[in-house]
Design a protein around this nucleic acid. Structure first.
Length: 196
DNA sequence: TATTGGATCGCC
DNA sequence: GCGATCCAATAG
């Protein structure tokens, strides 16, 4: 079952390429020796200080400084008083960019997801950025962890290369600025996307 | 030090 | 449609 963990090189590339190619990969969260995982089926790109929707549009701050660091690390932040969002840092050191993981298709540890989400319906477990962090128990404690560490508690593996091929690009969700950019990518006809 | 609003979700 | 709920960023 163990597959290849994505290397640093995968993330050290243009953010739009990373965002598209993350579709179909497997996000794995280790908890108490168990694997809790899902296929990434929806992502969004946030690129540089010139992107008005990117947290780095205000410059480097204590919150967003992870985005300015090396690619392949997790940027987790708290939002709306109750939820977390998971991003993966991309591009070169010093350039702030990341990909937001917006939705997963549950694969392993589904019983734990149901417990932590307090929901039974499969389509309610990971069909949104706040939902999937709750389902995989991803909190601010995981901000800054190295996703390239195969022995770590959060990483991304190769999965099924066919799944991410058929995708559509749309404007990003839940933001006012930067609506002209089609920087949200989701697998076509997948029931686990956050919004149609 | 005070105020404001957010890359959301779930219930009304 | 709107309230929950709190932290980061900005204004003063």
């Amino acid at each position: 079952m163990s597959k290849k963990v994505l290397s640093r090189f995968f993330y050290e590339r243009p953010t739009l390429e990373v965002a598209k190619e993350l579709l179909g990969k497997l996000l794995v969260r280790m908890w108490d020796g168990k694997r809790i995982s899902g296929i990434i089926i929806e992502t969004e790109a946030y690129i540089g200080e010139d992107d008005p929707a990117c947290h780095a549009s205000v410059g480097k701050t204590p919150r967003n400084c992870i985005m300015y660091g090396q690619a392949g690390f997790a940027y987790v932040y708290f939002i709306y008083g109750m939820y977390f969002c998971l991003n993966v840092v991309t591009e070169r050191y010093g350039f702030p960019a990341a990909v937001l993981i917006r939705a997963l298709e549950p694969v392993e540890g589904i019983e734990w997801m149901k417990k932590w989400r307090n929901k039974d319906k499969l389509s309610e477990l990971t069909s949104g950025p706040g939902k999937l962090t709750q389902a995989l128990f991803i909190t601010k404690e995981l901000n800054g962890v190295d996703l390239c560490d195969a022995n770590g508690i959060l990483f991304i593996e190769e999965f099924d290369s066919k799944i991410g091929k058929d995708f559509i690009a749309t404007p990003r969700i839940g933001i006012d600025k930067g609506k002209d950019k089609l920087w949200r990518f989701c697998c076509r006809n997948n029931p686990f996307v956050s919004t149609l």
